[in-house]
Simulated assay, not measured.
Amino acid sequence: MIYWLYELRNWLESTGVISDDAFVYKLLNIFKYHTFRAGGAAITAFFLSLMFGDRLIRKLISLKIGQPIRTAEEVHKLFELHGKKAGTPTMGGILILGTIVVSTLIWAKWDNIMMWNILFCTIGLGALGFRDDYLKISKKNSKGVSARTKLVWQTSVAVITALVFCYLVPTDATIDAASKANTSAFVQFGGDSTLRALFMPFYKGPIIADMSFIAVIFFTLIIVGASNAVNLTDGLDGLATGCSLTTAMAYTAFGYVSGSALYSNYLGVPHHALANEIPIIAMALAGACAGFLWFNAHPAKMFMGDTGSLALGGCIASIAIACRQEIVLALVGGVFVMEAASVIIQVISFKKRGKRVFRMAPIHHHFELGGWHENQVIVRFWILSFFFALMGLATLKLR
């Protein structure tokens, strides 16, 4: 919406109302730059969170929307560590979801189908999380939506998102002709290629030029997997929020490079002109996480619940797909991978051997039960997430 101010500048110039050396012309010109609008999206999301965070907490308390905690019989020693959190307002993911959507709509261009698809995935999975949280609170237990219903809903949203990416996003994006003519590597790195092409770190050009319908299945698995991984990570105050923040910052850089013909060709990464709006969404996500962390830091005044964690996972996954860095997500989101992998390993080991590998899964509980204070686990996992993000960004030059 803000971008329309730049369009207004063009109209004013064409009608002769202002000249190109006028102050108003120069002022309105800044709204065309993605970096400026990305920064604006982050600041907007952050301050919206601060403005409405306390109000939301008070509202959730008045509605008695508190976090149900699993009983001592279910989690044994962990109940002693987390039992005091019972009743803390949950469903705070409404704040994350709302600030992401509002700040994105304010600062991004509305004619970008990638932007709308990412928002669809984020809102769709956030709605599932909202339903799950509501059932947990109304029934006063930690079960919520059944596993089958949850999987069907996640898969449906993911399939629709994947289909749009694969078949509705233009393959022949509007590219600056000069940039296209300046390098023979342009087409090789995906300027005119479909989003169904598969790119791998350390390789120039796609390893598969067109995955066809397999791409829909692949993207669906990524979205469902990422949403569940972030959901599993959301077990300690600020853990999932902080890790999502570092991941969002990394994908801001990926989106900027992917959307720029100049930088993508220089670094040998896939380019698509419509990806130039990804930094705005990624920074809106980062600002929303930073604002929510203000209230979610230990000891948390509010939990995001599944409303936030499922939405965050969907948003991160769809951003990764949009800039064709979905494989790198396994590295950038390394903490999320650790958390999900620990649950898978624990379940397989217990079913096959009758023994547990970890004291408790997800793995953050393993370290808690090993004597680490909750704050130690959180901060150390944040540090790991930061370095995972740096390692992911390092792949940009290793091609």
Rank of each mutant, 00 (worst) to 15 (best):
V269Q: 00
S212D: 13
L236S: 10
Y266N: 00
Y134S: 05
Y25F: 12
I345N: 07
L384D: 04
T395P: 06
Q376E: 14
K84I: 14
G53R: 05
A286M: 13
M51S: 15
H271F: 12
F31K: 03
P362Y: 08
I316Y: 09
F386G: 13
I61S: 10
L393C: 15
S227L: 08
G354I: 03
L50Y: 09
G268P: 04
L221I: 14
T35I: 10
V335F: 12
K397G: 15
F130L: 13
F381K: 05
A311S: 15
H82I: 11
W110N: 14
V328G: 14
V347H: 04
L393Y: 08
I223M: 13
G371M: 10
G392C: 11
F31D: 01
M211Y: 07
V152F: 04
T307S: 13
I327H: 03
R148W: 07
G354S: 02
Y25L: 00
T149W: 03
Y263H: 03
L105W: 12
A108M: 11
G305Y: 08
F79S: 10
S264A: 15
F47K: 02
F292E: 04
Q67Y: 01
I321K: 09
G242M: 13
E277L: 10
F47V: 11
M91W: 00
F23P: 02
S156Y: 03
S138L: 00
G333K: 05
I43F: 09
W372I: 04
A322N: 08
V164Y: 02
F350K: 08
A181F: 07
G314S: 14
I160V: 15
G305C: 07
L285Q: 05
G305Q: 11
F254V: 08
I2E: 02
D192K: 08
H366S: 14
V169Q: 06
Q346I: 12
I316K: 09
L245T: 05
I214R: 00
V335H: 07
R359K: 14
F218A: 15
L105T: 11
G255L: 06
K139D: 02
K204L: 14
F23E: 04
A215C: 12
N141S: 00
L5A: 06
E7K: 11
S227P: 09
K32H: 06
T155R: 01
D234S: 12
M211L: 15
K397D: 10
Y33W: 04
F219H: 12
A297D: 02
H272W: 01
G334N: 07
V257A: 03
C166E: 01
G53I: 09
M391D: 09
I383V: 15
S179M: 06
C323D: 12
I106Q: 06
L5H: 03
H271D: 00
D234N: 12
M211D: 03
V379H: 06
R399E: 01
L168M: 15
A282L: 10
M1T: 14
V347G: 01
T220A: 12
L27G: 02
A108L: 12
F199P: 08
I321M: 12
F202C: 11
F120E: 09
G98N: 07
I383D: 02
P170H: 07
H82D: 13
P279N: 11
T241G: 05
Q376C: 04
T99E: 04
I113K: 09
G242Q: 08
I363W: 11
S318T: 15
T44Q: 09
D21N: 14
L331Q: 13
I100S: 05
T161I: 03
A162Y: 02
N231I: 05
Y134D: 03
G190M: 06
T155C: 06
I2T: 10
N10Y: 05
